[in-house]
Simulated scan of single mutants.
Amino acid sequence: MTHTAPPGAPGPEERAATTPLGELLSDVSRDLSQLFRQEVTLAKAELTASAKQAGKGAGMFGGAGLTAVFALLFLSIAAWWGLGYLIGNAWSGLVIGVVYAVVAAVLALRGRRELQQIQGAPQTVETVKEVPEALKPTTGRKP
């Protein structure tokens, strides 16, 4: 963004030579403050748009998950009904229930194993432990 001076206004070199340093610093401070406010406004607008888009995407995933649950329900009913012709409805219901129990157990065990492997933030913990030592004044003496 370039600024053009109004006709008859002094150029930048002439203004720098004739304006007191305090006024120049005040102008720079004001311009930096305005630039910062504009950047914050731009960041807010961008983050708002991103959040709206993420919300729409999350809603679509939620809808897909719900639809998948219904699909699984109806496929389970179809499998129960189909097996019912071969081995009877009670036994086919038991078979489908056992299959789901096995799947749930496998998923629970794998999830538990994954949670047990979480280490947190070990590097951050080590770095934070070093901060108090780094803030201590050094006098040139060795401990």
Rank of each mutant, 00 (worst) to 15 (best):
H3M: 02
H3C: 00
A5L: 11
A5D: 07
P7G: 08
G8M: 09
G8P: 02
E13W: 06
R15G: 02
R15Y: 03
A17W: 01
A17K: 14
T18A: 12
P20E: 10
L21G: 04
G22W: 10
L24F: 05
L24T: 02
L25H: 08
S26V: 03
D27A: 11
D27Y: 01
R30A: 14
D31Q: 01
L32K: 08
F36I: 12
F36T: 14
F36N: 14
V40I: 15
K44W: 01
A45V: 06
E46A: 06
T48M: 07
K56R: 07
K56Q: 07
A64E: 01
A64W: 03
G65P: 00
L66Q: 05
L66Y: 04
T67C: 11
L73V: 10
L73W: 05
L73E: 02
F74Y: 15
L75Y: 13
S76A: 15
I77A: 15
W80N: 01
W81Q: 14
L86M: 14
G88S: 07
W91K: 09
G93F: 15
V95K: 06
I96G: 11
G97Q: 02
V98R: 07
Y100G: 13
A101I: 12
V103F: 15
A104I: 09
R110V: 14
R110I: 15
R112K: 04
L115C: 02
Q116K: 09
A121T: 06
P122N: 06
Q123G: 09
Q123S: 08
T124Q: 14
T124I: 15
E126K: 15
V131A: 07
V131S: 06
L135P: 01
T139W: 09
G140R: 02
R141Y: 06
